[in-house]
């Protein structure tokens, strides 16, 4: 009764084609089928943002998108941010230096939301960063170090 469906996605530059359950969310497809485990399950409701990935450059909650719906798309997860040599990108480096990851579970989604935010290329003040990040929950940092890290890359350093 389970319908398998073939989906091809380019995940962090690697093309993956798999036949798997048609009902699988992009999150489950990535984690259970493609062994890309950096996006996390936190709620399954699209609320917490731990599963945030970029689909063709736009942030989505991978838990509430079906893999079949985004067939042929380009998917970027946090594991795709670092260079081939493993060197962290600028935003990741800022997260490291500011202590923006504590338990680290929200970090993969938070970084993808932040990546898209910074990619808009506009200077972001701290209130704007907070407003734009409201869809990504963190329970450890109080967001302080996360806002610090993003502000250090996109303007709006603490005065």
């Amino acid at each position: 009764m389970t319908q398998d469906i073939t989906v091809t996605l380019t995940v962090n530059g690697r093309t993956v084609t798999r036949a798997a359950g048609a009902h699988l969310s992009l999150l489950r497809w990535l984690r259970d089928v493609a062994d890309v485990t950096d996006p996390k399950y936190g709620c399954g409701e699209g609320v917490c943002g731990a599963c945030t990935v970029l689909v063709d450059g736009e942030p989505v909650s991978s838990c509430i998108v079906l893999a079949a719906q985004v067939d042929a798309a380009e998917v970027t997860t946090v594991a795709g941010l670092a260079g081939a040599d493993g060197v962290l990108d600028g935003l990741q480096q800022a997260f490291l230096e500011h202590g923006a990851a504590q338990c680290g579970f929200c970090t993969p989604g938070m970084l993808m939301a932040a990546t898209e935010l910074v990619s808009r290329g506009v200077r972001l003040d701290r209130d704007t960063i907070r407003g734009e990040l409201h869809g990504n929950l963190c329970r450890c940092t109080g967001y302080q170090a996360i806002v610090d890290a993003i502000a250090s890359v996109a303007g709006g350093e603490r005065g």
């Binding site: 969310s25 399954g44 409701e45 699209g46 609320v47 909650s61 838990c63 509430i64 998108v65 079906l66 079949a68 719906q69």
Partner: peptide, 26 residues
């Protein structure tokens, strides 16, 4: 019917609806 899925899939994940198929119109 599924388009963006932003209302339907949370409800499916929460077990509030249980369709035998989704028709993607996106």
């Amino acid at each position: 019917v599924i388009a963006g899925g932003q209302s339907l899939l949370p409800m499916i994940n929460l077990g509030l609806v249980d369709p035998s198929a989704v028709v993607d119109i996106s």
